[in-house]
């Protein structure tokens, strides 16, 4: 029912999900996150774990908790820019690691990426 990887801490996986939602714009700056319990029910996760996720995100400055009101996505543009950057890096390093593991050289990777982007250009721009 929940598509979490069972061998990776759930709080990290949930934090990453929320970060992606923010970068994609599904969660807007200043928007309120679901309550701990609601988020737990939505994602099928222990409320203690959700609590930990929110704490981690708060420590990273991505969300802020306002007493008695709930948890909100940060409105600080710098924080969001940093988040965007770090997700990009994370995604790229995952991709590069995979390619290197299969024995592709840097040049091959760059060339392949360029080709792919050119081929797909039309499709992505239509979005």
């Amino acid at each position: 029912m929940t598509d979490f990887d069972s061998a990776t801490p759930i709080y990290l996986q949930l934090a990453e999900r929320i970060q992606r939602q923010i970068v994609r714009g599904d969660l807007k700056p200043g928007e309120k996150l679901p309550s701990v319990r609601d988020m737990g029910v939505q994602s099928g996760v222990n409320p203690n774990t959700v609590q930990r996720t929110y704490r981690e995100l708060e420590a990273m400055g991505i969300v802020e908790t306002r007493r008695g009101q709930g948890t909100f996505v940060s409105e600080n543009p710098e924080v969001l820019q940093t988040l965007r950057e770090s997700l990009k890096r994370a995604e790229i390093s995952r991709f590069v690691e995979g390619m290197k593991a299969m024995g592709f050289s840097d040049a091959e990777i760059i060339a392949g990426l360029k080709d792919h982007l050119t081929e797909a250009e039309g499709r992505y721009e239509d979005d």
Binding site: S6, A7, P9, I10
Partner: peptide, 14 residues
């Protein structure tokens, strides 16, 4: 359970 995933990279079943 989270420590198990964190430190040993294991799911419960494994």
């Amino acid at each position: 359970v989270e420590e198990l995933r964190d430190r040993e990279n294991l799911g419960l079943v494994e």
